[in-house]
Amino acid sequence: MEVFSTTGRKRETYQVEVKYSLLWECALGIAAITNSHLLDSLDKPKSYWKEVKTSLSADLQAQLDYVETNNTWKALLQLLHQKDFSSLEAFFEYIDKLTDRELIYQCIPFITETYQPLREQAANKNVDAIEQLREATKDNPFFPSYISFICMIEPQQLKQHLIKVMGGWYKAVIEPELKNLNSILQTDAHTKEDRKVKMEPEEFVEWATGGIKYIPEPSVYKVLLIPQYIYRPWNITADLEGTKVYYYPVSNESITPSDKCMPSNFLVLKHKALGDEVRFRMVKLLFEQSRTLQEMTEKLALGKSTIHHHLKILRSAQLVGIEDGKYVLKTRAIASLAKELEQYLQQ
C-alpha cells in the first residue's frame, strides 16, 4: 500500500557551515601521530611520521606519550569549538582563564541532550554521574576511560599539558609549513562554499566528505565541515550540542590547484582500495551480506590483523562501513565508480 503525504511540507534538514583553522589542523596532527594503529592508513607515509617524531624535543615527545595514553587530543578539539580563536595565543588565554569546573565540563564529550544533566554533575566530580556516562559510552573505544581521566585529573595539570603539547606541535610542525597549510585549507573551504550554494545540504555533505550520507537527526540543526590535511584520507566525526562535525580530508585539487589533470582524492582512494586481490574478495563477501571481523577472518583464512588492515583501507575509501558491529558494503559507492571515472575523464 502506498502512503501519500497531505501536509505539503518537506522533510526538515540541517544547515551546513564550513570553517577552517590551523588550530584544528594542529590538534588533528596531535591526534594522528598518537593514533599508532592508524598511521599505516594515512596519506602521509610512515617515514614522514618517523621523521617528525625523531625531530621533536624530548619534552614534546613526553607530552605526546601522555596524549596517546589519555586521548587528550579530544580535549583540545572540544575546547577549540567553544569559540572562534584568532590565534594560538588567544586559545591559550581562553584555557588559562577557565575555572576548574568549566574546563572539565567543556572537555567531557557531548553525548545527547538527555545526558547533559549527567555531564554537568560529572564536571563536579560526581562519581555516580561519571559512571553513568562511562556506561552510556561503552561502545566507543576510548570514551569511558577518557571521561574518567578528564573528570579526575587536577585541572591545572591538564591546562599545562594542553598548552605545552599544542604549543610544541604548532611550533615544530605547523609553523614551518604555515603559509602552505593555510593556503590549502583556505582554498578547500572556499571551494566548498562555492559549491554549497548549488547543492542541497545532504547532497553537499555527501559530496564534501566523499560519500558520508548524513540523514538529519532530532536536535541536530547544523553540520559543521572542517577541512583537514594531516588526517587524510579519513573523515573524523564529532558531536556538539545541536551540531554534527566532520573534519573532512581536503581535496587533491586544493593541494595542487594548478594541476588541471589532478583527480579527486576519493576517486584515487577507491581505485587503490580495489587494486588488491584480498580486498576484492572482501568486497565480494560483503556484497553477499554484512559480516563480522571474525566471519571475514574465517572465510578468507587470514589473520585478524591482516583482515583488519585491509578493512581499514576499504573504510577510508568510503567503500565499507560498520553497522551494528558488522562490516557493510556501501553498494552505492561501488555502483557510482564508473560514473565518477567518466566525469573525471570528461572534465
Rank of each mutant, 00 (worst) to 15 (best):
A27G: 02
L28V: 00
I30A: 04
I30R: 00
I30W: 00
A32C: 02
A32F: 03
T34M: 00
N35G: 00
L38V: 02
L39Y: 00
D40V: 04
S41P: 03
L42R: 02
L42F: 14
D43H: 08
K44F: 05
K44D: 08
P45H: 01
P45Y: 05
P45W: 00
S47A: 05
K50S: 01
K50R: 04
E51L: 01
V52N: 02
V52W: 02
K53P: 01
K53F: 02
K53W: 10
T54H: 07
T54P: 00
T54S: 13
T54R: 07
S55E: 01
S57N: 05
S57A: 09
S57Y: 08
A58D: 11
A58Y: 09
A58Q: 12
A58P: 13
D59A: 13
D59P: 09
L60P: 08
L60F: 07
Q61P: 08
Q61R: 15
Q61M: 06
A62F: 14
A62R: 15
A62M: 14
A62I: 11
Q63Y: 12
L64W: 03
D65Y: 13
Y66L: 13
Y66H: 13
T69E: 12
N71A: 11
N71S: 12
K74P: 03
A75S: 11
L77N: 07
Q78N: 14
L80V: 05
H81E: 09
Q82E: 15
K83C: 10
K83W: 02
D84C: 03
D84E: 15
F85I: 04
F85D: 05
F85Q: 00
F85V: 06
S86R: 10
A90K: 14
F91I: 01
F92Y: 12
F92V: 09
E93G: 07
Y94Q: 07
Y94I: 11
Y94C: 12
I95G: 14
I95E: 02
I95Y: 09
I95P: 15
I95K: 07
D96F: 14
L98P: 11
D100W: 06
D100L: 04
R101F: 15
R101W: 15
E102N: 08
I104C: 00
Y105E: 13
Y105S: 10
I108C: 03
I108G: 02
F110H: 09
I111T: 10
T112H: 06
E113R: 03
Y115T: 04
Y115C: 07
Y115D: 11
Y115G: 00
Q116L: 15
P117V: 01
P117K: 05
P117R: 06
R119E: 01
R119V: 11
E120V: 11
E120N: 04
E120A: 01
Q121M: 13
A122E: 06
A122L: 13
A123F: 05
A123C: 04
N124S: 12
V127E: 15
A129K: 01
